[in-house]
Design a protein around this nucleic acid. Structure first.
Length: 209
DNA sequence: TGCCAGGCCCTCTTTAGGGCCTT
């Protein structure tokens, strides 16, 4: 049995943004951020804030997220929330479902407040595509049902989605460790997993036996 | 409701096109 580990692999922050649209390059803004910190396989901390983007969101986003313009009118400005969030994530490594989406918004919002983060991203969706090819699809909600993960039935809110992504992440680690007789799997190996072809996943892990 | 974007990934591919996933 081989241990795949490194000195900083056991703490990650799993995050999720609710936004006014799909692209910060098109003027879309974050309206809520949720995150949980996983340390040695256990959720040890949580962060959730609504944030006021300074403009109204459209009816589709209100309906999709349940976040209303009235709720955002009472929320702190994006700059204040993102400054707090930068403190929360620090230099920890980061996980998100379809991470390229959340990374674009994290980068855009932190750039506005001249803050940075030191960790790197891994994507639970890309990992799940390789580990669970039999799933009907790889939407977060589908994978939560597929793996019978804990949830309170609420979707498309930042903290709820971040928690479900965290449970998915832990389930994937546990499945890899069980299926490949590994003691632990590092963050870096999970990042590499998302870059190998689906057909090569077993071969990828056999390298460590 | 589903378009906007962008990266990944598959295939009837690579001199390309389209589906998936995120809000």
């Amino acid at each position: 049995m081989t241990k795949i580990s490194n000195s900083c692999a056991q703490t990650v922050v799993v995050l999720d943004f609710e936004t006014s649209g799909l692209s910060p390059n098109q003027g879309d803004r974050a309206i809520e951020v949720g995150a949980v910190r996983i340390e040695d396989g256990v959720i040890t901390d949580r962060f959730q804030r609504l944030m006021n983007p300074g403009r109204r969101i459209d009816g589709f986003i209100e309906s999709y997220t349940g976040i209303t313009n009235a709720m955002l009118a009472k929320a702190a400005p994006c700059a204040e929330v993102m400054d707090e969030f930068a403190d929360f994530i620090g230099d920890d490594d980061l996980v998100a479902h379809n991470a390229s989406f959340d990374q674009r918004f994290l980068d855009a919002e932190l750039k506005r407040v001249q803050r940075r983060y030191g960790g790197s991203f891994a994507c639970s969706m890309l990992a799940a595509r390789r580990l669970y090819p039999g799933a009907f699809n790889h939407k977060l909600g589908t994978l939560v049902e597929y793996k019978a993960l804990p949830n309170d039935g609420s979707f498309h809110r930042a903290l709820a989605d971040a928690e479900m992504t965290a449970y998915l992440w832990l389930a994937m680690l546990a499945d890899i460790e069980r299926d490949h007789a590994l003691e632990s799997v590092s963050f870096e190996v999970m990042q590499q997993l998302t870059k190998v072809p689906k057909a090569s996943v077993d071969k990828f892990f056999r390298r460590y036996h």
